[in-house]
Nucleic acid binder design. Structure first.
Lengths: 342, 342
DNA sequence: GGTCCCGATCAATACCTATTAGTCATTCAA
DNA sequence: TTGAATGACTAATAGGTATTGATCGGGACC
């Protein structure tokens, strides 16, 4: 209930100077302190419940123990949360803590948000976005370590690192989940057209097709907007077109929409039609009936990498600037081997 | 690219003392400054791109412009994100910024997380949880303003305010959504048994029943765990029991499970069976086919209130300690007037 | 002409900590 | 016996800012 004890309080209590307290509590070995004195200091500190004032420490040291996160879509999907959690994990391990600001849509708002972090002297900046998109970096005028996680700088200088999911490989795995089980009549229900993630995942699809000797045009394709509704509509369109045995969807929500459509058309899932998702969305992919075979987006790992980068000493030029994090395939019930042709 | 300019730099550049710069930039009216001098200072500040060092300001002032958020489930659902967004909104409006730590499950981890915030001298602490649960408050030993948003202190002292969703009223509205459209054969598919949110929502159901002259036992009830799967299972059980015309679900995910089950049983939704959700979950309730009639959890508003509380001067005893935030009904397509009995 | 006050500005100090440069015994080497 | 070295500690300063208490010149007043 009283004010926070300072180092001076501890010093007074132990009958030594503040300097000595600082030496003892920082465990400096290059300055000799008598064992008895050390004991008294530690005792006083414990008694008063002393905790160092990190803000003052940072000010004095000219360093900082705070990471700034400029996040995006923290309130839309849990993905941003997973990424932030990864960053926090790395931050904590290094004694750092995170300041988070959500990136406003308007430019001035965004700049001001970034400035509010810089004004607090953050050690580094992480632009964290769950959707793989370009972001316009704020012109800060001051040199600050910057890492992009799930996004990349639209203008010029790349900062220290750009961390992205390996969507090409992920797309390939998603396609293989169906191809490896004998499916050849396949529809690709893509997400937003020409968005980077969509393009990459479709490229992975093409790779997978080539691997099993299929031509790209052997796969029916259409594009939605990653919503449940677009999954529903595209699935209906697709099934009106041909008797596909597997639908490869842009994300889990589109896969959910597809399942709803297939239900309406009285196609059993996965008995008659297999469905592949993407994202491994929490509380959706695993719980669905049938549970989705899907590709996990490594948001947590991406955050972890971003955090580790900024909490480690700068300028280790051995590591690459552009980091692609693998997206593992998660096999569940929604994909089964293709049934014998009727 | 050079180091950040300080007030001394500005002073030197304008040919005045640091004191004068401080007076000008803080806009103090009680200290007279010659217009010409003021102009020179502002000019120098603009030229150098000076921005005050908030950490140093806070240290000097003995106050703080940082809010600490102890969050829960930031990576599970987007609800926590919405709440954080609300807090941030209030924080920004008052020139504050937020530090966020996710609450670890283990007690030591949690205490250490809270301490890491206090060590940075946050102005206040917000325990933010999307699920209405009790949390064990960390014994800090130092007086710090504390607000609970979506949760409440398990042990003793309540802090400044406890902000909760009005789940009783929400439950009532959910029930009325069905009752007002003539439904009387109703099943309540509750969430986790005896969890506070579940209990409150069911109490709202009872109130609504009483309002239309129904006895509590006229509603069939069962309890799950807020998962898609439990919604699916309970819906099957319910429909095997009786020909219900409306299912009132514990949350939107259970409603989704129920829809999947109803599809399998070839019940049209909402033609034959209406479904009511809860939460108004992003990217689910609105996009579903049919879109869910549901009750919105006011996480954003709760965060806003929490943030406003901590950024406003302490000790305004007129406002209540326990704040219930309304949960509005969102009417969409999944509930229709009951069809004539066949 | 001296006093008082006021406008304008600045030097000095404090916030809490880390670090540099001491101080003061005591011991050791020469 | 002197000097140097060492051990144990402290005074002073810095880091960027806010604030208190000067300083200083000039105009008003008696």
């Amino acid at each position: 209930m009283p004010a926070r004890p300072t180092m001076v309080d501890v010093a007074r209590h132990a009958g030594v100077s503040q300097t000595t307290v600082s030496f003892v509590l920082n465990g400096r070995t290059d300055v000799p302190v008598a064992p008895e004195t050390r004991r008294r200091v530690l005792e006083a500190a414990a008694l008063l419940g002393y905790r160092p004032n990190r803000a003052a420490q940072d000010l004095k040291r000219g360093s900082s123990s705070v990471l700034g996160i400029v996040s995006n879509g923290i309130a839309s999907h849990p993905f941003a949360g997973r990424m932030i959690l990864g960053i926090q994990k790395a931050a904590r391990a290094a004694g750092y803590v995170c300041m988070v600001v959500d990136m406003p849509d308007d430019e001035e708002g965004r700049d001001e948000a970034v400035r509010s972090l810089l004004d607090r002297g953050v050690a580094g900046l992480i632009y964290a976005s769950p959707a793989t998109v370009p972001v316009r970096q704020t012109e800060t005028g001051v040199r600050v370590r910057t890492v992009f996680s799930g996004c990349w700088p639209e203008n010029g200088e790349p900062g220290e690192a750009v961390i992205l999911p390996n969507d090409v490989e992920g797309g390939r795995l998603a396609a293989r989940a169906a191809l490896d089980r004998g499916h050849r009549r396949i529809a690709f229900l893509g997400g937003t057209y020409q968005e980077q993630a969509t393009v990459d995942r479709e490229r992975g699809l093409d790779l997978a097709c080539a691997e099993v000797g299929m031509a790209p045009e052997d796969v029916w394709r259409a594009y939605g907007d990653y919503s449940i509704d677009s999954g529903y509509r595209l699935a209906r369109t697709a099934m009106a077109e041909d008797e596909f045995t597997a639908l490869i969807c842009g994300n889990d929500r589109m896969a959910l929409g597809a399942v709803l459509a297939l239900h309406e058309l009285h196609y059993d899932v996965p008995g008659r039609v297999s469905v592949v998702g993407y994202d491994d969305q929490e509380e959706l992919a695993e719980e669905m009936r049938p549970a989705f075979t899907t590709v996990a987006l490594p948001h947590y790992e991406m955050g972890l990498l971003a955090g580790e980068r900024l909490t480690s000493p700068p300028g280790s030029p051995t590591v690459p600037e552009r980091i692609l994090v693998p997206c593992p395939l998660v096999v569940r019930a929604s994909v089964v081997p293709v049934s014998a042709p009727s």
